[in-house]
Amino acid sequence: MNEGCQGCGCGGGAGGGESRRSVMFKLGAGLMAVGGAVASVPIFGALVAPGFRRYGNTWLDIGAVGDYPAGETRLAKFAIPGASPNDGETATAAAWVRGMEGDKFQVFAVNCAHLGCPVKWFQQSRLFMCPCHGGVYYEDGSRASGPPPRGLFEYEWKVENGRLLIDAGLLPGLQETA
C-alpha cells in the first residue's frame, strides 16, 4: 500500500490551488484504483477460480470384477469424489463398462462425444444411441453414425484385489478425454 502511495507522488510538496487540486485528484484516483484492485482479487477470484484450479481424476472403485461379465456392457454408478454437500443427486455419475474375455474391460463415459447427452446401451444391436442428436456408437465405443466428431470418451481402468477401478471424476469433454 505504501508503495502505491509513493507511486502517486503524494509525498510531493504543496503548490498553488490548481496544482493541489490536481494532486488531490490524482491521489484519489490512485487510491481508488489500488483499493479496487485489492478488493477485486477475492471478488473475481472466487468467480474465476474454477478456471485456474487443476482438477484431476481419481481412482474410483466401481464394483467387483464379477459384476461386469464378459460379452456384456453394464452401467456403473459412482459418487464423484470431493463433491460438495449441496450437490444432491448430481454428485453421482455413471459409466458404461464393457466386459471382455480375460478380465479385460472398456469403460466409457455416458456422455456423448457430440454435446454430452447421456448415451444408452442396446444389448441386442450392440450399439450406443444418443437421444439428443442421434449419435450412434459401436460396442467398442467407436463412432457408428450421427454428428459426434469421435468415439466415446474412455476412462482408464485397472483391477486391484478383484475390484474394478476407473480413473474418473471430471465431466468429460472434447479437450479432456475423460
Binding site: 478456471g51 448430481t90 456422455n111 469433454g173 472434447l174
Partner: peptide, 26 residues
C-alpha cells in the same frame, strides 16, 4: 458445457468457470 469446452486452448478453463467446478453440481 460441451460447447464451451470446444473453445480452443482455454475451453476447458472456461467450462470449469461456467460450471463452478469440473462437473455439473451444486
Amino acid at each position: 458445457a460441451s460447447i464451451v469446452d470446444r473453445v480452443p486452448v482455454i475451453g476447458n478453463q472456461l467450462r470449469n468457470i461456467m460450471l463452478g467446478g469440473p462437473y455439473i453440481g451444486g
